[in-house]
Simulated scan of single mutants.
Amino acid sequence: MIQLHDVSKQYGSFTALHSVNLTMKHGEFTAILGPSGCGKTTLLKLLAGFMEPTSGEIQMDGSLVASKHQLIPPEKRNIGMVFQSFALWPHMTVYDHIVFPLRHHRHTQDEWKKDMVARVQHVLKMVGLDQLFDRYPSELSGGQKQRVALARAIAPLPDILLMDEPLSALDVELRMDMRTEIQRIHRETKACIVYVTHDQGEALAMADKIVVMNKGKIEQIGSPEDIYTKPETAFVASFVGKCNMVKGKWEEGRFTPRAFPWETWPDIGVAESLKQEGFCPVRPEQWAMADESGEGLKGTVLSVQYQGKEVHYVIEVEEEKWTVHQSIFSRRYQAGDTVSLAVKAAEQQPVFV
């Protein structure tokens, strides 16, 4: 188990992390999600032991590993790490990369040290590289290089696997394949994975728990479903799933859009914090769209993007721009068309008064 207690990190006058409190359990896949500069990589470096916190403490399995006055270095922690840039040595073969941590990781099991060839073969088979053991990095594709980096990290079977945007250098198809591989390896190794990413799709697809960060602070912690369907802050709502943040007023459990004071909407499970800020988050897929004769909010189509299974629209309603996702089987609209918008789910339909 990893526990962070009031962990902060400053670089001179700049505070990269503000009093972070977080617990990650054994076998749990935790995604640290946020935009560039939010502090997620700083958090990972602290967990790895590359630097000490300015204040607060980090414990692993009940032992203090980092504080302002104490730092257990990376080589003395039972961790593995996968970097964004692969970080492979050009003069070493695939086999050499995997055997290296077995020889030097202090937590490698004695039986594996006695028969490192068998362990390397097992790990390479696990990541689908058993036929490429004698290749050098220059002879591998991007996806194969990432598999080598992953195999190297899991070879000594660390308790904690830290991953710093490991798929960002791959193309879309390879990223999808590697998501599946990482999930499978997580099930087999049962390691605690801490996965840093700015890609909400990766976090939603793979993680057991998502930690959403912004400006060095934790905005929300929860399961992928909770983060997506029950955002607690305006940042989480707009960053994860691109909610349309409709401005207005909450009174007696009903919402009145600011631009349409003659309408009220029922509470669809909006967090109290968002109600206090005067927001009602609506996902792009929650809107139903009809022509201008339909009931609902009237708007003008600004842009249309065909996305295969969906068509993405940007609709200008009064002075606000909202994103709407519709099935390809729905009626198509063109830029300049006037349309009507209503919340799609029956229990979330606007009430006209």
Rank of each mutant, 00 (worst) to 15 (best):
E320I: 01
C192W: 00
F86Q: 12
V351H: 01
S36M: 07
L174S: 10
E28A: 04
A346P: 12
E347N: 08
H325W: 04
G34L: 06
E188G: 02
D159I: 06
S55G: 12
S19Q: 14
T30C: 06
G222N: 06
S63V: 04
E320L: 02
T54H: 12
V301G: 03
Q200G: 08
D208W: 02
V339T: 06
G56R: 02
I182V: 10
F260N: 00
T256Y: 00
M1V: 07
H5T: 13
Q70W: 02
K344V: 00
M92S: 09
H69D: 03
I315K: 08
V324S: 07
D61E: 14
A16N: 14
T323Y: 09
V270N: 03
K40L: 11
P74H: 01
S8T: 12
Q200K: 07
P231Q: 10
R135S: 10
I315E: 05
Q286P: 05
L150A: 14
M213I: 11
Y333V: 06
K68C: 11
T338S: 08
P350M: 01
L167G: 11
A207V: 09
K25F: 10
R184D: 11
G248A: 05
S340M: 04
D177T: 13
G128R: 10
D291M: 11
L102K: 01
T323G: 08
G49Q: 04
K45C: 15
M51P: 12
V123Y: 01
S293W: 14
D208M: 05
S67Q: 00
Q220G: 03
R147G: 05
R175L: 15
E347V: 15
K298V: 01
R147T: 12
H122T: 11
T54A: 09
K275L: 11
A16M: 09
Q348K: 04
A259P: 10
R331L: 15
D267T: 08
L129S: 09
R184L: 13
Q59F: 15
V94K: 01
T42Q: 13
Q10W: 12
Q307K: 14
F14A: 12
H69L: 04
W265F: 08
T41V: 13
K9V: 05
T189E: 09
C243D: 04
N78A: 06
Q59L: 15
D96V: 05
A16F: 08
T23M: 14
T42I: 11
G37V: 04
R332P: 14
